[in-house]
């Protein structure tokens, strides 16, 4: 096994613990208690006082990596404006960042959902935040679901056209 394989292997293990939707976990009889706890955690209401995505939750370098991934893997089906426009904002404003992460990490790419490493999904997310003119900070966004539950998605009005 080479280094790439190892990286992905670790990634899958993390995914299994962190990102598998609650409805799947519920299928496992011996994990019922854990499932309900995780389910509750995943559906947690956003805390209005929680830090927001306007506080620099990703780094510029990470967004740059995310842009390369986005152009290579995403944009043949999506255009960037679909991830910045009113429909997108309407869906995600006010939600915990973990919701957006979970959606992307469990549903995309459509033909092979959950196939990328958590760090890769986090890089993509950083670029999507950057597309929405959210400011970069000093550190990468980690694919840490519990931490992301405490970050609220907030858009900076007015939304100007993202520079490509």
């Amino acid at each position: 096994m080479n280094g790439i394989g190892h990286r992905i292997l670790c990634a899958v293990a993390v995914t299994a613990l962190a990102v598998v939707p609650a409805d799947l976990i519920a299928l496992r009889p011996q994990e019922g208690a854990k499932a309900s706890a995780q389910s509750a955690a995943l559906k947690a209401k956003p805390d209005p006082k929680a830090p927001t995505t306007l506080r620099g939750v990703f780094s510029n370098g990470q967004a740059e990596r995310g842009k390369d991934l986005y152009l290579a893997l995403c944009q043949s089906c999506h255009v960037a404006i679909a991830h910045t426009g009113p429909v997108f904002r309407g869906h995600w404003a006010g939600r915990p960042l973990s919701d957006l992460y979970t959606f992307v990490a469990t549903r995309m790419p459509k033909n092979e959902p959950a196939s990328l490493a958590p760090e890769t999904y986090a890089d993509l997310l950083a670029y999507i935040l950057k597309l929405n003119q959210m400011p970069a900070g000093g550190a990468d966004l980690a694919p840490d679901l519990p931490a992301m539950q405490h970050v609220r998605i907030q858009f900076a009005p007015p939304l100007k056209r993202a520079k490509q």
Binding site: P21, D23, A114
Partner: peptide, 20 residues
């Protein structure tokens, strides 16, 4: 009324168990 996210996008039916 704008639908909730899970309905507005297709429901996730997982294709993995424990990441497999």
């Amino acid at each position: 009324k704008k639908k909730e996210m899970r309905q507005a996008f297709a429901p996730a039916v997982p294709t993995t168990i424990g990441g497999i």
